[in-house]
């Protein structure tokens, strides 16, 4: 199980990273979501004591799953949800000011700005 968890975490992380390298910002957001998922899975895996839900009355003699990682995972899920929502609206705003969701274009604009700076410096 250990290696399987590690493997699935790695797959989620790797695909997320791959998506983040894509051109359009939608995919970047998707990549971040995947990476967050990878981390949350990892948190749960980090408390890998499979058992019953840690809810009273506790079952006698049976293992109980680690409640602390669950709490951590919940907090992390909520935080990443909030930030993802924020990122989505940021992407939208970048689009409305630049009319693009294309990263390439974004860096082109940066290059343009820098050329402008160069011209001003020379002047």
């Amino acid at each position: 199980m250990i290696v399987l968890f590690a493997l699935v975490v790695a797959i989620l992380f790797g695909t997320g990273a791959y998506l983040m390298l894509k051109r359009d910002l939608i995919r970047v957001v998707a990549g971040i979501i995947l990476i967050s998922n990878a981390v949350i899975l990892f948190i749960i895996a980090a408390g890998l004591t499979r058992g019953r839900a840690p809810i009273y009355p506790l079952p006698e003699g049976e293992p109980i799953s680690d409640p602390l990682v669950q709490a951590m995972a919940l907090t992390a899920i909520v935080i990443s949800f909030g930030i993802t929502a924020l990122l989505l609206s940021l992407v939208y705003r970048v689009y409305t000011t630049r009319e693009t969701v294309d990263k390439e274009d974004l860096s082109l604009a940066e290059a343009e700005d820098e050329r402008q700076l160069e011209v001003e410096r020379r002047a």
């Binding site: 493997l7 975490v9 790695a10 990273a17 791959y18």
Partner: peptide, 30 residues
Amino acid sequence: NVGVGLGAGAFAFAVGWATLSQPAAQESVA
């Protein structure tokens, strides 16, 4: 991009596996 993705996956795998293989040093505070 594929290479970078694979690299990212690889290091995540290494860290994840190394960590999960390691038995906890003490009984969890949980």
